[in-house]
Design a protein around this nucleic acid. Structure first.
Lengths: 335, 335
DNA sequence: CTGAAAGCGCTAACAG
DNA sequence: CTGTTAGCGCTTTCAG
């Protein structure tokens, strides 16, 4: 059974489609009596406006696109929850896409979202993204974009991040104060903003703590637990082992964590370890992991908030905002 | 800058819009020469078809709606990945919505998806859903729906589940064979299909193992770690404590796990514990958790596959399929 | 207060 | 092989 249309209502009520349309949207021109008749029939026939047709007409949709590297990363799942809460309250639907950490796929989904005429875009960059032209095309069309967590300087747009620098600095400072002297860093992909800031926080904390910088103590890798495993194995080749490790994020920390134990070393006595994000599972490890809390849900809400504002503004002379949310050191017994 | 339309291309090439439209879609009627001209200009102007307009015309969209209770549950995140892979390969976009485990919200997002004229729906029921009319409305409109994991008998549709009964039976049988005599069950919400089957697997395994059924050993709750915490506390009130616990899923098992340790009991010596799903974190617990592997990614792919078939069929005399995927017992040292 | 007419961007007969 | 025409369901002038 085909869904009821405005025409159906009009025919049945002996009104014109335009009148029905106005009545449905509570236009002041329409008499209360007519409105009641229209609304009551609409309910009876279970009428719902065809948002496709609406969009074609108004050139606007009530959907916003979200691009994340991977849904399965708990951090992003939580960000999406934040986005959804706000978007939903504003009557928007979200389309979630994954770049699977590849630039190619990111370009494709961005285009697809553009073709869907999304009202705006919320993006966390894939780890292999270098070129941002695919986003600029949409911006030129007037599609607002807000970046979060993984951002780039090569594009003018509002951005929401956490203070990765300070988060990293705090955790390394904590390690130093706890007496660790040889602190290694399992770093993330070199081109990611989060990797850079966390690395900088690490080096600055070492310097302030008067500890020597040692390039061999920094191992670059990806962001998954397997990268933690590989990274730790590289550290094992050093002449002198580190006495503490700061990993770029929790999954990497977890991978290293497992390897440390497999090598029969005690945490934190033989080697201490800390992560970044405070994903749920870190609290369940034995010993529980020291980490840095990132307000993931807040990031989502804030980014969505900014996007909504931009959508509802006449974006002539729009000034991008750069919002930095606070992190919070969580000390547990792994350090 | 407004995006280029078919009209723009037509004007520039001195062709009619229909010719351009056909050329773009590689229609056999069009001469190779014309096609080339059209395609090359399209690339130059960065033309992409307006999928909104396409949908309005064809009454079809290339989007499929996905409704899950919560994205943040790793099981569902993984299912979504499976769905996405298949949908994406078939040129479909997915709109992911959460019911947040409430029936009200489920009704709202279902309607919204209907209004978006999705080509089909993939659904895992919220835990408070009793009435399925909101889905039946869409089915009557010809929108195919495939249910997965959390399904209901009250609706005729294809369904994809795992063998919850056997999974539960296997794990409880394993507990019995390992010598445990007083096996408790932290059960899920009573009205969920998965709860019922896992409970039945539990009771049947006890019977086959000649162990007495004891209602006080079955504690009903939700599906989160907090439910595991609460559930375990209820078990503590028993005169004789259980020597093993089978939890309806991993989060519940984890909650109980933490409480057991907090009470100073040893796993598995004082009390053994097993979960269901094989989420990643279960392998990291100390001791690692015995659980039942659910092929979450496969569930997503299979459900999407069924949906695609149904979308591409003339659903006159469509016969719903019921697919049961195998589970796999994973024995670790918590039992 | 209501209606008629046009058009959003695209596709699909039907002609030529 | 290409063009003309009509229309998807809705909103929006412009008239009454």
């Amino acid at each position: 059974m085909a869904p009821a249309t405005i025409k159906d209502l009009a025919r049945e009520l002996k009104l014109s489609p335009s009148t029905v349309s106005r009545a449905l949207r509570d236009h002041p021109d329409i008499s209360p009596k007519t409105k009641k008749r229209v609304v009551s029939l609409a309910n009876k026939l279970d009428y719902h406006p065809d948002s496709i047709a609406q969009s074609l007409q108004t050139k606007k949709t009530k959907t916003i696109g979200v691009i994340v590297p991977e849904i399965k990363q708990p951090f992003f799942a939580s960000v999406i929850n934040g986005i959804e809460e706000l978007a939903y309250a504003a009557g928007y639907t979200i389309i979630v896409c994954q770049s699977n950490e590849t630039a190619d796929r990111e370009v494709l989904v961005t285009r697809s979202l553009g073709s869907h005429r999304v009202a705006g875009l919320l993006v966390s960059l894939s780890r292999s993204t270098e070129n941002l032209d695919h986003f600029k095309v949409l911006q030129r069309r007037g599609v607002p974009i807000v970046f979060f967590d993984r951002v780039s300087n090569d594009i003018e747009a509002s951005k929401v991040v956490v203070d990765d620098y300070k988060g990293a600095f705090d955790v390394v400072e904590h390690l130093i104060k706890s007496g660790y002297k040889r602190i290694a860093h399992l770093a993330g992909p070199k081109n990611l903003s989060i990797s850079k800031f966390r690395l900088k926080g690490y080096t600055d904390a070492l310097q302030q703590g008067n500890l020597p910088l040692d390039d061999s103590m920094v191992v670059y890798g990806g962001l998954d637990d397997t990268d933690g495993i590989v990274g730790f194995q590289k550290l094992l080749h050093l002449k002198t082992l580190p006495d503490a490790i700061f990993a770029v994020n929790d999954p990497v920390a977890t991978g290293a964590f497992v390897m440390i134990k497999e090598h029969g070393m005690k945490i934190p006595d033989d080697i201490a370890i800390a992560g970044f994000s405070n994903t749920y599972m870190t609290s369940l490890l034995e010993p529980p992991l020291t980490t840095v809390e990132q307000p993931s849900y807040e990031i989502g809400k804030t980014a969505a908030q900014l996007l909504m504002e931009q959508i509802n503004s006449n974006y002539e002379n729009f000034i991008p905002k750069f919002i930095v949310l606070k992190t919070h050191l969580i000390v547990r017994s792994s350090t």
